[in-house]
Amino acid sequence: MNRLKSELASLKMFSKREFIIWSSYRMNAWMWVLDVFFNTTIFFLLSLVTKGSDISFFPYGNNYVTFIVIGLGVHYISYTNLGDPFARVSKIYWGGTMDLYLLSPLSYYTPLMGIMFRSVIDDYPRVILALLFGGLFFGAIYSVANIWLIFLLLILILTSTLGFGIISASSFYLFNFKQNTEPVRFILQDIIIALTAGYYYPLTVLPYPLQVVGSFIPHTYALDAFRRLLIPGGDLMARVLPIQLLIDIPPITLDILILVLMTIITIPLGLFMYVQGIKKARREGTLTRWQ
């Protein structure tokens, strides 16, 4: 119990430190708001392409701005959770602080989670802001039919992408990927997600093999469920994804189950790999680099 308390106190301290740093740059906040605004604008401009056309977004209603703003929101979460753990571990290594964290009573995971608070502060609120800008300026309309379900999906997309992120981070020590390009993140983020996540278009417009590839990433299920629930006119029962066509369960239930499954596989696997990586680095003398 005491141990948990001290780990939580440390996490709180990390978040405080990251907030002090984040807020100490006043320009940051303005740049941050502008960045989200312009990103939303770009997505809105993309939506104009479909204006007046009879392109179908079935089963995701008929408001492409909402469709694309939800894509932007999931993109923010995914980009942070998938890409950030590796970048943070890299920062600990190059900054030379891994040794100091190991000399503290903290668990191996707390520093990793702790320094991710910068992204939590910086990136997660972007989702709310993007949805807000979409609604206020660009004509996005949201139907909040089931707020608890949306909240549950939000947690699941956070945890499942974080699991992949920790796997990516563990490769820093486990496979000695000390440079920026790390295969797990590269394959997932820059290839599979970029091609098949469906930020800008429904997965169903892709060739079937790509739809199958897209079935292995959490974005597919999160976007499917969010869009059905949040876009007015979304169909809750129509089955369109490859796995939905195979398993006879209501689509949103299946989306949730798959996200739960991805979470319970990727998070323990990531944490296990991360510890193995640290142990390996302790044997090889590559825990940190003092410059």
Partner: peptide, 14 residues
């Protein structure tokens, strides 16, 4: 432990 450079573990933003 104190590393050769004081910058290890010192956050310049604090």
């Amino acid at each position: 432990l104190v590393a050769p450079t004081a910058d290890v573990g010192t956050d310049n933003n604090l």
